[in-house]
Computed example of a mutant assay.
Amino acid sequence: MQASFPIGVFDSGYGGLTVFKSMVEQLPQYDYVYLGDNARSPYGPRSFDTVYEYTWQCVQWFFAQGCPLVILACNTASAKALRSIQQKNLPQLPDPSRRVLGVIRPTTEIIGRYSQTGKVGILGTKGTVTSDSYPIEIAKFWPQLHVYQQACPMWVPLVENNEHNSEGADFFVQEYLQQLMAQCPDIDTLLLACTHYPLLENKIRQYAAPGTRIVAQGDIVANSLVDYLQRHPEMAQRISTGGSRRFFTTDDTRSFDEQASVFYGAAVQSQHLDLHVAE
């Protein structure tokens, strides 16, 4: 049996599937493993230490599956755990050539291309907003941009409870957009800094000012991965090319499969993972 060295894709729940979908579309030849830590989601309200602990535990599981590269397709994990994992954990591994990448840097590298006014709004979870990761990273690439942030704590529960198309969702979409625009009415670009939020894009567009650019991360992260593998052929050569996709969840597989298909745009058949057993 041929050895499998897949790309690992991680999220606290379902949202990372919007990024995973774009990755598979652009790089269909590779093997992939997706893990949603649904039993412990949402990560957004949790402390830095807890998000780091959960994320590193899941990353170690990916490494045990043979993954040489893991993508944190989760803004909260990227904001609260990625740097610690890259700086503290990876250098101590028996194989320090393994890599863990996130979704924040690829987005911040290009966000300035979208804005005409130089005013950008970040819509994210409480954890992502509190971390200030986006303003810090954007300042490195686009120091002239003015960045405004708005936490949207009700959006992930709405999406994960399949209420994102309901009338009840309108209230919370409108409320958070109004709070953001009150900070600066000249914002012309909205970054959906949570991988769940593309499912709310139609409603966000409905209540945003006409002409506002709404930027989702899926294609941006996928494009960045294509570029990364071109620049690092030694990594690309390590990833197996069987075209397989495996899905795991730390929660109930039946409910995961039903909900995941909405994010992924195709049928999903997952396996249950007990992380306490996997440790």
Rank of each mutant, 00 (worst) to 15 (best):
S270G: 14
Y43A: 09
T107V: 14
A260Q: 03
A3H: 12
F248K: 02
T76R: 05
Q86S: 08
L27W: 01
G243Y: 04
A39M: 03
P28A: 04
Y30Q: 01
F20P: 03
V59E: 10
N165V: 13
Q86F: 08
H146D: 13
L273T: 00
D219C: 07
Q269A: 13
L191C: 03
L17P: 05
Q87V: 13
C152Q: 05
W56Q: 04
P135Y: 11
Y43I: 11
N38Y: 05
L145M: 10
A73Q: 09
E160G: 11
S244C: 07
S115P: 07
L101M: 14
V262A: 11
V268G: 08
G16E: 01
I7A: 01
P198C: 03
L17S: 11
Q271W: 00
Q65N: 04
T76E: 09
Q2S: 13
W155M: 13
A260V: 02
S270F: 06
P96K: 02
M181I: 10
P153N: 12
L69W: 05
D257I: 06
S240V: 02
T125G: 13
D11I: 06
R40D: 11
R105H: 14
Y114K: 07
E53R: 14
D95N: 15
A39R: 05
S115G: 07
T130F: 12
D252H: 06
D227R: 11
V51E: 08
Q237N: 00
R98D: 08
Q26K: 15
Q237K: 00
V156N: 05
S240C: 02
I111N: 09
D31E: 06
F247G: 07
S133R: 12
Y207K: 05
I104C: 12
Y228M: 03
N38G: 12
M154Q: 14
L27F: 03
T253M: 02
